[in-house]
Write a protein that binds this DNA or RNA. Structure first.
Length: 315
DNA sequence: AAGACGAAAGTGGTTGA
DNA sequence: TCAACAACTTTCGTCTT
C-alpha cells in the first residue's frame, strides 16, 4: 500500500456521519480553533482531535525508519501545550552535524534561554499544566476511561478561558471538571467519590460544578441507575445474566413509577441485590452497599419497596 | 456468628411560601 | 430567608439461618 492510499477519515470525509451521541441532534458547531465539534443542542463535545493524531505512517525497515520518521508524540489535549513544544538542543551542532561558530553558539544559547523562559511563561500556563496532571491523577485513581479524562481537560480549559478558576481552588475546579465529564460521558461517579480524591470538600466541588454548568452552558444528563449497574456488577464479580435481570427489574420499576426522586445508585444496588439472588449469585447487603457507596438500610428499603410493588419472589 | 431486619433519631439538600 | 419535607444515614436491638 502506498502512502497516498492511506486516508484520513476525520479530515477527508464530510461531516455526514456525525451527530450528537447524546441527543442525536445533527446541529453541530465546529470549533476549529479548539479542534472540537460541539453539539449546538445539548453542548456535548461530540468529537475533538479534528486533526488526526494517529501515527503518520508505519515503517518496515531501518532505512525507511530514518526517512519516514514520525514527527512527534500523538497530539493530546491533556498536555498543556498539546505536546507541541520546540526543543532546542544544547549540543553545539547545526542540523548537518557541523560544529557551530562561537557567535552562532551564543545566539543559540540566547534562544534556548528564551525558549525555556516562555514555555511555562504565564502563571495561567503553569496552572493549566498542574490542573491537567491532577485531572489525569484523579481519573486514573477512579479508573475512568480516556474519553472522560479528555473531556474533563477540555471542560477545565474552557472554564479557565472564561476565568472561572480565579477565586476558586484549582483542586475543586479540577474535581468539578472530572465530575461533569464523567456524567457527560455517562460513566457517573458520585461527588463523594471524586471529592475524596482531592483536598477540596464535597461542598466546594459541588459549587464549582454548578458554576461550570451555568457558565459553559453544559446540558448534563441526570445519572441513570442503568449507568451504575454494570460498574457495580463488575466490582461484585456478578455475571452478565445478573446484570440483564437487574436491568429488567429496573425497567419494570420505572414503568411503575417507583424510581422518581430515588438515589440512582441505591436503585441499581437494590436491583442487583435481587437479581443476584434470583440468579443464584447471592451477595450480601453489606457488600452491595459498599460498592454502591450507600448504607445497607437504603439497599434494604429500596429492595423491599421494589419487591412488594413488583411482586418479585425471592428464595 | 453472620446476615437480615426495622425502628428511631439525625443530617444535608430541595422546595415553596 | 425560613420552615417543611423526602430521602438517606447512623445506630442499635432483635430475629433468622
Amino acid at each position: 500500500m502506498s502512502n497516498a492510499e492511506i486516508s484520513n477519515p476525520t479530515i477527508n470525509d464530510p461531516v455526514v456521519a456525525l451527530k450528537c451521541n447524546e441527543c442525536g441532534s445533527k446541529n453541530l458547531i465546529t470549533d476549529m480553533a479548539r479542534g472540537e465539534i460541539i453539539c449546538a443542542n445539548c453542548g456535548l463535545v461530540v468529537e475533538h482531535h479534528l486533526i488526526d493524531s494517529g501515527p503518520e505512517w508505519r515503517s518496515f525497515s531501518l532505512a525507511e525508519d530514518s526517512r519516514k520518521n514520525r514527527t512527534g508524540l500523538p497530539v493530546s489535549v491533556t498536555l498543556h501545550d498539546k505536546g507541541l513544544t520546540t526543543h532546542i538542543n544544547s549540543n553545539a551542532q547545526d542540523a548537518l552535524g557541523r560544529p557551530l561558530s562561537p557567535s552562532q553558539k551564543s545566539r543559540m544559547q540566547r534562544l534556548r534561554r528564551w525558549q525555556l523562559r516562555t514555555r511555562l511563561r504565564s502563571s495561567a500556563d503553569r496552572n493549566l499544566a498542574y490542573a491537567l496532571t491532577e485531572i489525569e491523577r484523579i481519573s486514573g485513581q477512579l479508573g475512568l476511561p480516556k474519553t472522560v479524562l479528555e473531556t474533563a481537560a477540555i471542560i477545565y480549559k474552557q472554564a479557565a478561558g472564561k476565568s472561572l478558576i480565579r477565586g476558586r481552588s484549582i483542586q475543586a475546579m479540577v474535581a468539578a471538571s472530572v465530575y461533569a465529564s464523567a456524567r457527560l460521558r455517562r460513566v457517573p461517579r458520585s461527588l463523594d467519590e471524586i471529592s475524596a480524591m482531592t483536598r477540596a470538600s464535597k461542598k466546594e466541588v459541588a459549587r464549582c460544578y454548578r458554576v461550570i454548568l451555568a457558565e459553559l452552558q453544559l446540558k448534563v444528563p441526570i445519572p441513570k441507575p442503568e449507568d451504575y449497574c454494570i460498574r457495580f456488577a463488575s466490582e461484585l464479580h456478578l455475571s452478565g445474566k445478573v446484570v440483564r435481570k437487574a436491568l429488567d427489574i429496573l425497567h419494570e420499576a420505572k414503568r411503575n413509577g417507583l424510581t422518581t426522586g430515588k438515589d440512582p445508585g441505591g436503585l441499581a444496588a437494590a436491583c442487583l441485590y435481587m437479581s443476584a439472588i434470583i440468579e443464584n449469585e447471592h451477595r450480601n447487603q453489606r457488600e452491595i452497599a459498599r460498592v454502591a457507596a450507600i448504607t445497607e438500610v437504603t439497599v434494604r428499603n429500596r429492595y423491599k419497596e421494589l419487591q412488594s410493588n413488583l411482586r418479585i419472589e425471592l428464595h
